[in-house]
Computed example of a mutant assay.
Amino acid sequence: MSLIIQNLSKHYGSVPVFRHVSLTVAAGEFVAIIGESGVGKSTLLNCMAGLDSWDEGSVLLDGLDLGSQSDDQLARLRREKTGFVFQAFHVLPHLSVAQNVALPLMLLGQHDDARVQAMLQAVGLEGLGERLPQQLSGGQLQRVAIARALIHQPMLLLADEPTGNLDPHTAERVMDALMSQTRTHGAAMVLVTHSVTAAQRADRVLLLTASGLEPHAGA
């Protein structure tokens, strides 16, 4: 699944967030986006997922123009094709760890305990499936969110600081899981990060500024 962004601009009132952003991500490609805090990296990810609107330009997912889709159509597209790792986790407090991870499968009418357990192991949460979110650390909650984003094998993976609360060893394990979805299953992945280590694993590293995306000089 390919992602094509053409001349995308976003404003809050009269204040520009970013302007003239263009990007193509092919199936199986991993692109990292870096930039100063407040430059609009998370907002750009939200636009890629159809979670936020934009003022100019277009976002195409496998040729489908997200700007022309209804809210219901966008929700279905996210449910079936997209995995999103939110910076704020958005883990449901009344569901167990395993139930949170299985949620995308449940929404698709699927049930696969073996896949859930394998995903928990992949992110280092084996044996914690029955715990509630309030019994976990921040780093563990982040891994629940990552496992949930990967469980239905999405073809577009969007990750907002997925290793931000993790120690180096766990961060590497999580990046391995994310990379597997890209390399093994052919997903297109866009990762927003401040981590040099995470960005170094990308096929391309791009810098977001107020005037758009540009290749990072250190990449």
Results as ranks from 00 to 15, higher is better:
69 Q>M: 15
29 E>L: 02
194 H>F: 09
32 A>G: 04
153 Q>H: 12
102 A>H: 08
74 L>R: 15
103 L>A: 14
171 A>G: 15
100 N>W: 04
55 D>I: 10
41 K>T: 08
212 G>H: 02
47 C>W: 00
161 E>W: 05
147 A>Y: 01
14 S>W: 00
53 S>T: 15
219 A>C: 07
155 M>C: 13
118 A>F: 04
40 G>I: 10
78 R>Y: 11
34 I>H: 00
56 E>C: 08
81 K>N: 07
123 V>C: 09
85 V>Y: 03
66 L>G: 03
111 H>Q: 15
23 L>I: 12
124 G>R: 09
182 T>R: 05
218 G>E: 15
153 Q>F: 06
35 G>Y: 03
151 I>L: 11
133 P>S: 12
88 A>Q: 11
100 N>A: 05
83 G>N: 01
194 H>P: 04
53 S>F: 04
134 Q>Y: 14
39 V>W: 05
96 S>V: 08
175 M>G: 02
143 R>I: 07
82 T>S: 07
169 H>Y: 08
127 G>E: 12
124 G>P: 07
186 G>T: 14
173 R>H: 08
112 D>C: 09
146 I>K: 01
29 E>D: 02
132 L>G: 08
43 T>H: 07
87 Q>W: 07
140 Q>V: 09
73 Q>R: 09
105 L>V: 08
84 F>L: 03
38 G>H: 14
28 G>D: 09
92 L>A: 13
207 L>I: 02
112 D>K: 09
152 H>C: 12
23 L>C: 12
11 H>Y: 14
97 V>Y: 02
102 A>V: 06
202 A>N: 04
117 Q>M: 10
194 H>N: 10
45 L>M: 11
98 A>W: 04
21 V>W: 02
91 V>N: 03
38 G>I: 14
57 G>L: 12
47 C>L: 01
129 G>E: 10
163 T>G: 02
4 I>R: 11
105 L>H: 09
72 D>K: 09
16 P>D: 01
131 R>H: 12
26 A>Q: 15
21 V>Q: 04
28 G>P: 02
173 R>W: 07
202 A>Q: 03
200 Q>C: 03
65 D>R: 15
